[in-house]
Amino acid sequence: MGFIIYLSSFSFSEETVRNPNIYPYHVFADKAEKLLFFRPITILYGNNASGKSTVLNIMAAKLQIEGRECATGYENYFAKFVGECSYTLGEDEKGRQLYSIPQISRYIKSEDILYEIKKIQQEQVLREGYIYEHIRRGMSKEQIEQLKNSREMRKRIEILKFAQTKYSNGETTLQLLDDYMEPDSLYLLDEPEVSLSPANQTLLAEKINEMARLLGCQFVISTHSPFMLGTLDAKIYNLDSRELQVVKWTEVENVRYFYDFFKKHKKAFE
């Protein structure tokens, strides 16, 4: 299978509002460029408050994919902004135009992963999540009652509890991401490296490269991890720049900081 581009480009609203601090208009108020073009893997790099998460959430809302969030407030400016955005779809591996985003596409946030880990740590919440998942799949009330007292459910809960005691948060994160991600999908990932060691960040990046290359997946990822930036075969947008510049991973501020820090302390390693 060759590379597939489900989402080709995304254009953010060019409209202005009276109050420049209104969310999410304020994120783009000083941007000279508001158009992104995507590759199989695209990274949105930026420091804290650069708008990485906002960009992904706007895209998820516009594309109507699972995991999207909707901000509310006076006149619902978030929905207004999303309505003013636009996007173009890409082509399959044979060059044929696509007309929709895969239904199993998903927006996965770092807090989603941390919440799932917390659920595993709390048996009651875990039980409720397990039951809810079966309700979501269409199981009837009678079947749910049978499930609550079943050996199958007790066994599954024990397996998950054991997994939590056996594996670290980082290993659990990798397993959860494996469970979430399926072939032939578009994924928006918001700082997936949270709670992962440098070695596991690199491992995750290598898995993402493989899924894009072999399993027909496309990724848009927000991160400032030098290990993710250096491992992913990606196009990198610098959200700290006014022009949304495309940069090399060695040029971004966070990576340069690491480089300068270790260079300064080079003798300590010798």
Results as ranks from 00 to 15, higher is better:
residue 137 R to C: 02
residue 137 R to A: 15
residue 137 R to I: 04
residue 138 G to I: 04
residue 138 G to W: 10
residue 138 G to P: 06
residue 139 M to Y: 06
residue 139 M to L: 15
residue 139 M to G: 01
residue 139 M to I: 11
residue 139 M to V: 10
residue 140 S to E: 06
residue 141 K to M: 12
residue 141 K to Q: 15
residue 141 K to I: 14
residue 141 K to W: 15
residue 141 K to L: 14
residue 142 E to Y: 04
residue 142 E to L: 10
residue 142 E to G: 02
residue 142 E to C: 01
residue 143 Q to T: 08
residue 143 Q to I: 01
residue 143 Q to W: 00
residue 144 I to G: 03
residue 144 I to D: 03
residue 144 I to V: 06
residue 144 I to Q: 04
residue 144 I to R: 02
residue 145 E to K: 11
residue 145 E to I: 04
residue 145 E to W: 00
residue 145 E to A: 09
residue 146 Q to A: 14
residue 147 L to V: 01
residue 147 L to S: 07
residue 147 L to M: 05
residue 147 L to H: 09
residue 148 K to L: 09
residue 148 K to N: 02
residue 148 K to A: 02
residue 149 N to V: 13
residue 149 N to Y: 12
residue 149 N to H: 14
residue 149 N to A: 12
residue 151 R to W: 15
residue 151 R to H: 13
residue 151 R to T: 13
residue 151 R to S: 14
residue 152 E to R: 07
residue 152 E to C: 04
residue 153 M to G: 05
residue 153 M to T: 00
residue 153 M to C: 04
residue 153 M to R: 06
residue 153 M to F: 11
residue 154 R to C: 00
residue 154 R to M: 14
residue 154 R to W: 12
residue 154 R to S: 13
residue 154 R to Q: 13
residue 155 K to A: 12
residue 155 K to S: 12
residue 155 K to Q: 11
residue 156 R to W: 06
residue 156 R to G: 02
residue 157 I to E: 07
residue 157 I to A: 04
residue 157 I to W: 06
residue 158 E to T: 10
residue 158 E to W: 02
residue 158 E to Q: 12
residue 158 E to N: 11
residue 159 I to M: 09
residue 159 I to G: 08
residue 159 I to W: 01
residue 159 I to C: 06
residue 159 I to F: 03
residue 160 L to R: 08
residue 161 K to R: 15
residue 161 K to F: 01
residue 161 K to I: 14
residue 162 F to N: 09
residue 162 F to S: 10
residue 162 F to G: 10
residue 163 A to P: 00
residue 163 A to H: 01
residue 163 A to C: 08
residue 163 A to K: 07
residue 163 A to G: 00
residue 164 Q to D: 07
residue 164 Q to V: 11
residue 164 Q to E: 10
residue 165 T to L: 08
residue 166 K to D: 10
residue 167 Y to F: 15
residue 167 Y to D: 05
residue 168 S to W: 00
residue 168 S to E: 02
residue 168 S to G: 01
residue 169 N to F: 10
residue 169 N to E: 08
residue 170 G to F: 03
residue 170 G to Q: 08
residue 170 G to W: 06
residue 170 G to A: 08
residue 170 G to D: 01
residue 171 E to L: 06
residue 172 T to P: 02
residue 172 T to A: 08
residue 172 T to N: 12
residue 172 T to H: 11
residue 172 T to C: 12
residue 173 T to Q: 08
residue 173 T to S: 15
residue 173 T to K: 14
residue 173 T to N: 06
residue 173 T to W: 05
